[in-house]
């Protein structure tokens, strides 16, 4: 929807630019000069900022992340038919938005978390095209509990379940990782041996 709005805005800008360029005599009057300034300066800047924000929004989509070949197994792991697979159970049960599945868990929930994620994304594009992709992909730093607790903290299912209650201080201070117990993550090395869920239109 916003892409179409952008296209219409660009079209309007192009028409105005074309009008001024074809009839430069318009710019002899004060009104024409203002029109030219809007068409040649204001509207292109607005369009570029608007477009960049749409691009950033697109880059949060699951489809976008999985469009890179090395990410394909990770996308497939979301369909593993086994509830102990943490990403798969979150994805299949709509605990995270399916169209923003990667981004929801792999962004940092901090002030500049989105920006960090995007800068890393740019680095990934650079490595994809100009460097050798490592055979085993790994996170830059250990997965922080903050990303899990962003949703699970204060949830009844988390708060009332042992050993969460007893270990709350250690979990909140990141002393003990959630992944210590919930250790089955994407496990892409074993995808050939697991059953794959055929739901969700796949």
């Amino acid at each position: 929807m916003e892409t179409h709005a952008f296209a219409i805005f660009v079209l309007l800008t192009i028409v105005l630019i074309g009008l001024v360029a074809i009839r430069p005599s318009l710019m002899t009057a004060r009104g024409g000069k203002i029109l030219a300034f809007i068409a040649f300066f204001i509207m292109p800047i607005v369009a570029t900022v608007f477009g960049a924000s749409i691009h950033l929004d697109h880059s949060k989509s699951t489809q976008f992340c999985l469009s890179c070949h090395p990410m394909e197994p990770y996308g497939k792991s979301l369909y593993v038919d086994d509830p102990t697979y943490i990403p798969a159970s979150h994805f299949q049960n709509n605990r995270i938005p399916r169209n923003h599945a990667c981004f929801t868990c792999h962004t940092n929930y901090t002030l500049f978390g989105d920006l960090h994620a995007k800068l890393r994304g740019l680095r990934h594009v650079y490595v994809y095209y100009f460097k050798e992709i490592p055979p085993k992909l790994a996170l830059y730093e250990p997965y922080r509990n903050r990303e899990c607790l962003h949703c699970h903290a204060n949830a009844r299912s988390f708060e009332e379940k042992s050993p969460h209650t007893e270990m709350k201080p250690q979990l909140f201070s990141n002393e003990v990782s959630c992944l210590t117990c919930h250790s089955t993550i994407h496990n892409v090395e074993h995808l050939d041996t697991v059953k794959i869920w055929k739901g969700a239109g796949k």
Binding site: T3, F6, G51, I54, S67, Y128
Partner: peptide, 12 residues
């Protein structure tokens, strides 16, 4: 710019 928005790839 408009064309790239219809192309959902990192290179876009």
């Amino acid at each position: 710019e408009a064309v790239t928005l219809y192309w959902s790839k990192p290179t876009s």
